[in-house]
């Protein structure tokens, strides 16, 4: 059963680049002189790869945030990390650092994590409600800052920012997917390396400490790694909400296993979810592709609510 679902998922991912508004002629894909070749290798395939790995990073990031902050609502989005990253990218666009979008995205994410982490140290414990409120307040603050940036920007910059904040896996050129792929494997590897520590953190910080985990160090490493990965991800795709929140929950409630046993499935199905969402976004028959964030929220929202209701 498990293998079957994996196979089905892989088939969807594999077939995904062949579908889109312009039908492809299969024979042309291997022929470099055709438009179809360019369309497949430069547009469709990068898009599917970015969707898959971004979905993986966001879902795994959600899992790690939930484990570290011990709150089912904690994700890089709900705590304002992704918004911080978005602000960083917008800042880079407006002030002429367009070549350093990833770096600014990462700095925005890192700054937010530092604020959140500082809060937890100051509060002496992981008072998760306070943390969520801080995250929400930060998100408002960042949105206001984003509005100020709009006023400071010229027309083309404004358009660039708006397009960016809509969230899109629209990436041209296979080579541009390399950073996000490498980052994904990095984050995945790190999570698997810290599997046992993650399990202990999923019980409680005190228990983890007593069993020999250097809680502060492991938390810091994990949070910095997630902000780095989210920074890379957001600078490439813009903010895509909801994936990090729902994928870990959906997998946990279906598989009924503790989260650290689901690191690989959460990464994989998170990726699949974005590939599917993008596939829908590209094939709705509208004049232009609708932003992928709209699809994820439109599909994920009701399903998530259904899962919560079913549990009660």
């Amino acid at each position: 059963m498990k293998i079957l679902t994996y196979l089905l998922a892989l088939t969807i991912i594999f077939l995904s680049p062949f579908h889109g508004q312009i039908p492809l002629e299969l024979n042309n894909i291997t022929n470099p002189t055709t438009v179809d070749h360019k369309l497949f290798w430069d547009i469709r395939l990068p898009r599917v790869l970015v969707a898959f790995f971004a979905g993986g990073i966001l879902s795994l990031g959600g899992l790690i945030f939930q484990s570290v902050f011990k709150n089912p609502m904690s994700t890089p989005y709900t705590l304002g990390v992704a918004t911080g990253s978005t602000l960083g990218v917008a800042f880079a666009i407006v002030f002429g650092f367009s070549s350093l979008l990833s770096l600014f995205g990462f700095l925005g994410a890192l700054l937010t994590v530092l604020i959140l982490f500082g809060m937890t140290l100051k509060l002496q414990s992981y008072e998760t409600n306070a943390l969520l409120l801080v995250g929400i307040a930060l998100a408002f603050f960042y949105n206001a800052s984003l509005m100020i940036l709009f006023y400071l920007s010229d027309e083309s910059q404004s358009f660039e920012i708006i397009h960016f904040t809509m969230g899109s896996v629209d990436v041209v050129g296979l080579e541009k997917t390399l950073p996000i792929i490498l980052t994904s494997f990095g984050l995945l590897g790190l999570s698997l390396f810290y599997k046992k520590e993650l399990k202990l953190l999923l019980t409680s910080n005190d228990y983890a400490y007593l069993k020999g985990v250097n809680v502060k160090r492991v938390n810091t490493i994990l949070l910095v790694a997630v902000s780095l990965a989210v920074g890379v991800c957001v600078s490439l795709t813009g903010p895509i909400g909801f994936v990090g929140l729902i994928i870990p929950h959906i997998l946990k409630s279906i598989q009924k296993k503790s989260a650290e046993q689901l690191i690989v499935p959460i990464f994989f199905y998170g990726g699949l979810f974005l590939v599917l969402s993008d596939l829908i976004a590209r094939n709705l028959g509208t004049n232009s592709d609708i932003p992928i964030g709209i699809v994820t929220a439109f599909l994920g929202g009701p399903f998530f609510i259904y899962l919560i209701m079913r549990k009660r």
């Binding site: 484990s67 011990k70 046992k196 399990k199 202990l200 999923l202 019980t203 409680s204 005190d206 228990y207 007593l210 069993k211 020999g212 946990k252 009924k256 296993k257 503790s258 989260a259």
Partner: peptide, 29 residues
Amino acid sequence: TKLINYIPAKLEIFDEYITLGEYLDLSRL
């Protein structure tokens, strides 16, 4: 971990799917 351990008054556990067996395994030191 060799020197000192503390057993709190109440079991505190965040993840709802960690089983008793798994919890004990984490303490096998």
